[in-house]
Amino acid sequence: MEDKLTTEKYWESYYKHSHVNKKHITTVCSYYDRIWNVFIKDNDEKKSVIEIGGFPGRYLAYQYKLKPTCLDYNSYITQIEGSFKVMDVPKYHIVQEDFTKFKPQTSYDYVMSNGFIEHFENYDTILDLHVKYMSDQGRLLVMIPNMRGYIKFYKYMVDYKNLKVHNLKCMKLQVFENFAKRNNLSLLFLDYYGGFPLGVHQKNNLIQKLIYKGHRLFFKYFANEILEKHSSKYFSSAIVGIFEKKK
């Protein structure tokens, strides 16, 4: 299953700067509080949660009342450990393995996957592997970026290097509807989510900087307020799906 669009080296470079900061973790993760409230039905320390591709651990650390396990092949585990420490999470488990090859030894009440499947050509196969980690009546949360619609045009102009390591074919609601049917899962939530993704992951020339600043002014100070209330497949930054094993 060697059809990854990224490498371990890519991710170690992508996260080379430390993200271990309580304010930063809270700011990033609280943006999805509405999603957490749907996903987690029993925020109990006896319940287990695993994040697939969980580096640098901020989403797991934010859900501090659950028993967290982070599965990731990134070798910089000190950032994961730092995230748990700064969020006062005393007990956690780190599995440093390649998800495509690893065989789970246990199942989990909650499974999270954030920004993961879109880095593979065979995203349907990768999605199906997530189900192996779900306990009976377990829940799965999948969040991926949305880079279709107008966002693709914007990324092509100012963030092309980042765009090309993502598989845009999986960025459709139908992919997740089919996944739920294929694996006999109940679909609890599925929609586009968030404002316009302004972030850029490369150095830009003067024209690109002007394009970026123009979009930043328009979306940050006007359009994103609308998108936060009314999601759009053309402009919203993410797709979020929440699934549950049927009884």
Rank of each mutant, 00 (worst) to 15 (best):
Y192F: 13
Q174C: 05
Y133I: 08
L168V: 12
M134T: 02
Q105P: 04
S135C: 09
R58L: 03
T125W: 01
D33T: 02
Q208C: 01
S232E: 11
K203E: 14
K132A: 15
D3L: 10
S18D: 09
H119Y: 09
M87Y: 12
K246D: 14
K65Q: 12
D33V: 00
Y192Q: 13
E225V: 00
R139V: 01
Y192N: 13
Y31I: 00
K181L: 07
G115E: 03
P68A: 11
N183S: 15
E51Y: 00
F189E: 13
V165G: 14
L140T: 06
E8R: 12
I242V: 06
E45Q: 10
I144Y: 02
H19C: 11
N205Y: 00
F39M: 07
V89Y: 08
P68W: 03
L206C: 04
K91A: 10
D98R: 12
D3C: 10
G195L: 03
H93P: 03
S30C: 00
K155H: 13
Q202R: 07
M1E: 15
H19E: 14
K41M: 02
K245G: 15
I25N: 00
I151L: 05
G54Y: 01
V158I: 14
D42Q: 06
L173K: 14
Y154I: 04
I50D: 08
V131F: 05
T78S: 10
R139M: 02
Y64R: 08
E121R: 03
G195I: 03
K203H: 09
V49I: 15
K65D: 12
S236E: 15
V86R: 08
K164A: 08
F102N: 09
T69Y: 03
V131M: 07
S237I: 08
Y108E: 11
K209E: 06
E121F: 00
K85A: 10
S232D: 11
L190P: 05
F189I: 06
M112W: 03
L227M: 04
Y62W: 09
Y234L: 15
F219D: 08
Y10R: 11
I226F: 10
K247F: 14
G149T: 13
V49K: 14
D98T: 07
P68T: 10
D72C: 13
Y154T: 07
V165D: 15
E118Q: 07
L210F: 00
N114I: 04
H166Q: 13
F222P: 04
Y59C: 11
Y160F: 10
S236P: 15
K67H: 05
Q137R: 09
R216C: 09
N21G: 03
R182Y: 06
P197K: 13
I52R: 03
Y221S: 07
A238N: 15
D44F: 00
L141Q: 09
K233H: 03
H19F: 08
K22N: 02
E121M: 01
K132C: 12
L71V: 05
K22H: 02
D42E: 10
R148A: 02
V175F: 01
M134S: 05
I25V: 00
Y62P: 11
Y73C: 12
L163M: 09
R58N: 10
N21K: 05
K247Y: 15
